[in-house]
Design a protein around this nucleic acid. Sequence first.
DNA 1: ATCCCGAGGG
DNA 2: CCCTCTGGAT
Length: 209
Amino acid sequence: MTPVEILDEMGKLFPNARCELAHEDNYQMAVAVVLSAQTTDASVNRVTPALFAKYPDVYALANGSLDEIADCIKSLGLYRNKARSIQGMAKGIVDRFDGKVPDNMRDLTSLPGIGRKCANVILSECFNVPALAVDTHVNRIAKRLGLAKADDSLMDVERKLKRKIPRDRWIQAHHQMIFFGRYLCHAQHPACKQCPFTGICLYLRKKAK
DNA sequence: ATCCCGAGGG
DNA sequence: CCCTCTGGAT
């Protein structure tokens, strides 16, 4: 199967693959994606309504009390780091980018809490820039389906996927692989009986012997 | 016990 | 490269 054929199959399984972080603007998206580290989107969506009601924009978040911000997001875990990150990010956006979420990799990753993965998500979701964010799901799926090697770094995986997938499908591919990983090819106990890729799956092959 | 749309620091 | 941060869901 070619990479594009694999993606087409995923598209049939999950035709509604899209960003599941609830957000109404770029500010909310940037905050939500930073909060999403090591947590489920569902958990993030549980805390963001109150967070955004209390801090409706970057200026409010930049000027908020760090303890109160942390309190809003406590149920997510890593909450002290995340509180520092989102407030530092808000301050950086206010001080250096005129209150607007930047639209390029270098500026985004200069902000606290935003690494390459979050920057890629923001670029694609907020600005429709061709990007392919490699998160835990994309990493796992790419390796199980032989699109990358088991010991490849996240950057290696991103490069290989970008080489194998047409640019105009990068954003869609990201969501398709996430949905496939989140709802079928789980980290533990993947639903192999429903999977169309058992013929090429390295996880299954390894498991068999 | 393991994983969840990671980043920063050593 | 490694480690730490962290609570909730399964």
